[in-house]
Amino acid sequence: MEAILEFLTSVPGPTGKPALEFVLLEWCSRQHLFFGAYERKVSSVALCKILQHAITHNDQRFQDIHVQGDEIAQQTNGIRTRSKALQEPTQWTSVPVLVKIYKLLINELSNQMETNASLQANNGLDDEDEGWDEDDEDGDEVQFTGQTLYSLLDQYDKGDYQGLGLDEEDEDDPDALQDPTSQIDLQAYLTEFFQSFSQQPCFSVFTSHHTDVEKQVLHAISINV
């Protein structure tokens, strides 16, 4: 960790600032593009370690790096048309990079909770389906998909990457299988991370940046904010 941070701090990025800032800016803006189960675990665990290191060592190299935060709600009269959107482009808050990493990890925890809940719902439906006729009393076919609204929207946002078998490729990759990271239960890992992090004196600094959705996610794992 220290060797990598020192190297990235000592060499310039494309804008002339330390490459560390460039790497973190690109990483934070692309975290949502990791779709394979293994890739998401590697990236999320790495972000946890970066956040933990920066806080534990009070690493000043992270202090002056700011990135795009949350979208600022636009106050508009009537329907927001395309022309209005062009005239009033989306605006975003600016937050310290450590806050952004923290928020990305909450989002990943939310994704894991939704995915696991959906899988449990699917398993429950499979069990209940045993012994049932495929057709109802009126002769109409009954279909149990087990998909929640969240999972359908999530699939749409991802461009249906889940249908490309990316997670299956993880299972076939011998390097991924040999990496202990692939065996991590990411929901349990992030839950433990946040419960521990919430006990840190600096936690109040991060809570001031919470959205209502993020508060709900933390409440779900018994963290009151």
Rank of each mutant, 00 (worst) to 15 (best):
P14K: 04
A46R: 05
T191S: 08
P174D: 11
L105Q: 00
E39R: 07
I223H: 02
K84S: 06
F34A: 10
N77K: 11
T56F: 05
C48R: 00
D64W: 02
D154F: 01
V99K: 02
Q63Y: 12
D59F: 15
L125G: 13
P174A: 03
D154M: 03
W132G: 11
E130S: 05
D170L: 00
Q155F: 01
R40N: 02
E26C: 10
V225N: 06
E134I: 14
A85I: 02
S151Q: 05
H209D: 04
D173N: 08
G78T: 10
S44R: 00
F62C: 01
K84A: 06
E137F: 08
A54E: 05
L119F: 04
L125V: 12
L104H: 01
I223G: 03
L109D: 07
A176P: 00
H53T: 11
F144H: 10
A117L: 12
G78P: 10
S43F: 09
T93L: 09
K103F: 13
A220K: 00
V23W: 09
L218R: 03
V97F: 04
G16Q: 05
E130M: 03
T15W: 06
I101Y: 06
L190P: 04
K17H: 12
V225C: 00
V225M: 01
T9L: 15
D129N: 02
T191Y: 06
R40D: 06
G146F: 03
G13K: 09
I55S: 00
Q147D: 08
K100Q: 14
D129R: 05
L5T: 09
A37Y: 08
P18Q: 02
L86C: 02
E26N: 14
L166N: 07
P89Y: 08
W132F: 15
N111M: 12
K49V: 03
L98P: 05
C48M: 03
L125D: 13
I79P: 08
P174Q: 09
N122K: 10
T211F: 00
Q200C: 06
K49A: 07
G163T: 13
E26H: 13
G163S: 14
N116P: 00
S94T: 13
L125H: 11
I106W: 00
L109G: 08
E71K: 06
G69A: 13
T90Q: 14
W132A: 14
D138Q: 04
S208L: 07
E88W: 01
K158M: 09
D212Y: 10
Q60S: 15
L190G: 04
D172N: 15
A85H: 06
Y150Q: 07
F35W: 10
F197L: 15
L177H: 01
E169L: 15
E39A: 13
I65T: 02
I72L: 08
T9C: 14
Y161R: 09
N116R: 01
A188N: 02
A19K: 15
A37M: 14
A121S: 03
T90G: 07
K17M: 12
A85W: 04
